[in-house]
């Protein structure tokens, strides 16, 4: 039983042994060569010491070789990245594949990796909310334009005070009702050019009309966070 098994096992072992033996031999040869070289170098050195002062050339060469080495930080970073795991298709994956000599794998990885998107959408900023027009809104806009025209042309009498009061009161109620219902929007639209002075005049008049002081408005605003 054992002999065929062993026979089968032996050829499997021998190729592993052979390189080891070869390596040992090579190492021995190398060691001998190194020894010989060292002896020769020592002899040369002794001769050179006699003739001229010692040159620092071999030290320089050693330093040059060190400069090619990655720094310890680079090495640590590389190991850290390795331990994290390398995502397929990244530069790191390709580098590792190339360094490990698996050219075929590297090519396959490169081919399998999806083309990096050239355009990356960072944010989409939607258009401002669209205005929905109702017949009443259109009518109100038309009337507002007529009032603006009156002011522009200096016609301040056509719309009598009681009509203005009715308009202001109705809009005041409508705006407040919307706010209380949770529909919050600025009191003045983007395209209405009302000056700060106009606003202060009307706000003051509104407060006076309902017998409120500015500090009461301030208090109410701070309590209600409106």
């Amino acid at each position: 039983m054992s002999s065929p098994d062993r026979a089968a096992a032996k050829p499997a072992k021998s190729p592993a042994k052979k390189p080891k033996a070869a390596a040992t031999k090579a190492a021995a040869t190398k060691a001998a060569a190194t020894k010989a070289a060292a002896t020769k170098a020592a002899a040369t050195k002794a001769a050179a010491t006699k003739a001229a002062p010692v040159k620092a050339a071999p030290v320089k060469r050693a330093r040059k070789a060190d400069a090619g080495e990655p720094s310890s930080q680079d090495k640590a970073a590389f190991l850290k990245a390795l331990s994290k795991g390398i995502a397929p298709g990244t530069d790191a994956a390709r580098t590792v594949a190339r360094k490990s000599g698996k050219k075929g794998e590297a090519a396959a990885a490169a081919a399998a990796a999806p083309e990096a998107p050239k355009v990356e959408v960072l944010r989409r900023i939607p258009a401002p909310v669209k205005v929905v027009d109702t017949p009443e809104s259109a009518h109100a806009l038309e009337f507002a334009a007529r009032i603006e025209k009156m002011v522009e042309t200096g016609d301040l009498q056509t719309l009598q005070p009681h009509a203005q009061q009715a308009l202001i009161a109705a809009l005041c109620k409508l705006y407040a009702a919307n706010t209380e219902a949770g529909e919050r929007y600025p009191a003045l639209g983007q395209r209405s050019a009302v000056s700060a002075t106009d606003v202060m005049i009307l706000c003051g008049a509104l407060l006076k009309a309902v017998d409120l002081q500015v500090f009461e408005l301030g208090m109410w605003q701070s309590w209600s966070s409106t």
């Binding site: 050239k118 355009v119 990356e120 959408v121 960072l122 944010r123 989409r124 900023i125 939607p126 258009a127 401002p128």
Partner: peptide
């Protein structure tokens, strides 16, 4: 859409 914006990176 009209009025919309996109911030992209190239």
């Amino acid at each position: 859409k009209d009025g919309e914006r996109q911030i992209i990176r190239i």
